[in-house]
Amino acid sequence: MKIILFTIITGISISLTSCGQVDPNKNIDEGKVEENIYTSEEIGWTIEMPKGWTVIDKEKTKEINEKGIKALEETMDAEIDYSGLKILISLEKDLFNNFQSTSEPFILEYEGEWEENNAALKEIIYTTYLNQGIKTDSSATTIEKIDGLEFQKYSFTIYSPKGEVILKQLMFSRLINGMDFGVIINYNNDKNRDELLKVFRNSKFKK
């Protein structure tokens, strides 16, 4: 089974730090930032970054990503090849409120393969949380249109050992230009959720 990783398992390994760098382009693998606009030519995606949010340090993001992948590999009992994974724009306001986007090549071998893998990834993430002793709930997968393109969308709710909600995650994904494109919004309050949702929903994609 081919599993394409498009997100970081933040609920397993939350330890993000702000980059504090003047040039945010040093913290992305693909695309560019000019003023407060990020553009990915590969995806054909443009997004306006919200004020008050910091571009996350790329090395710290990769470090967290590797921890998440290790947890996934334990669940699958197999190695994951993530050599093609690219960090696009990732933003944070604080420990529990951040926006992450990645892309990875996905070559279709048959119709419906990407959808099957996306559904399988959702189940593996859910199982991984449980295997790590993290109580979580997941939502049904729905479709949301953004700039006319259909994205698969689902969410996770992460609980403390006492049953209190400590983090919520919204995940969006779509196959674009042969790339598995994913966005994850982590939040612990409605204000930050709404702010990040607004900027993503205002994204523009080349048709």
Rank of each mutant, 00 (worst) to 15 (best):
G31L: 07
V33T: 03
L5R: 11
C19R: 01
D23Y: 00
S13L: 10
S15I: 00
K26R: 14
I12V: 14
G31A: 07
T17G: 08
L5G: 06
G20T: 00
G11P: 13
V22A: 13
G31W: 06
N27H: 15
E34H: 02
E35A: 04
S18H: 11
L16N: 06
N25T: 03
V33W: 03
E35W: 02
L5S: 07
E30D: 08
N27A: 11
I4P: 01
E34S: 02
S18T: 15
E35I: 04
S15N: 05
G20S: 08
T10V: 08
G31R: 09
V33Y: 05
E35C: 01
C19H: 09
I14Y: 14
G11M: 13
I28Q: 05
T17I: 14
I9T: 06
I28R: 06
G20A: 06
I9P: 01
I8C: 06
S15R: 02
C19E: 11
I28C: 08
G20Q: 07
F6I: 12
I14C: 12
N25P: 01
T7E: 12
L16S: 10
N27R: 04
V22L: 14
N27D: 14
P24D: 06
T17R: 03
D29K: 03
K32F: 02
L16C: 01
I12H: 15
D29F: 04
I12E: 06
I8W: 03
I12L: 15
I8F: 09
E34M: 01
V33M: 02
I4C: 12
E34I: 01
I8L: 11
T10C: 05
I9V: 12
G11E: 12
F6L: 09
D29T: 06
G31K: 06
T7I: 13
K26W: 02
L5M: 08
N27I: 03
D29G: 05
T17N: 07
G11D: 11
